[in-house]
Amino acid sequence: GLLTILRQQKLKEREVRVLLLGLDNAGKTTILKCLLNEDVNEVSPTFGFQIRTLEVEGLRFTIWDIGGQKTLRNFWKNYFESTEAIIWVVDSLDDLRLEECRNTLQELLVEEKLLFTSILVLANKSDVSGALSSEEISKILNISKYKSSHWRIFSVSALTGLNIKDAISWLANDLKEIKLGTIDY
């Protein structure tokens, strides 16, 4: 009846499809495991993808963790449909590949299906000595050229859990604003 339809609609409003992307070895799966409070010491390279769900600030995130190896990046586009947010993971220690990271991200940002998504950039491994700061990474990635709002960068560590909860809360609140409040890109 009507009540079931309304209930389903309400559930749909709370559901968010999130893509977890980044170059290989950035720490995508470790971040996902950290969010789910699982053991982060036993992580192997992602061959293909995995889907996990997570409740954050009243929203139900369906997170698609897709392998970042060069050979797998061509398949990313198959997952873009109805994506509402992207979590882009950067290895803060890998200064030699930041340019490659920037180019790959910028290719994503001009994708038709991803134009109105929220972007959360996680500068991972920030606890290790020699890590670049989020300001330095933000400058190199130059996201503001493509997006004026609905993106933010956080320095995090999946291994220690530093800032991960704050970052995901920001994303949840931003998505709530888009879904329930006024849309302003």
Binding site: D94, D95, L96, K125, G130, A131
Partner: peptide, 27 residues
Amino acid sequence: NKAVKVSAKSLRSCNISISNCSSVNLH
């Protein structure tokens, strides 16, 4: 002997040996 990060590129006929590293990037 604190762990350090190593970032190296364009090397020819070199011997590199660092005993304690946090991470290493070679290109």
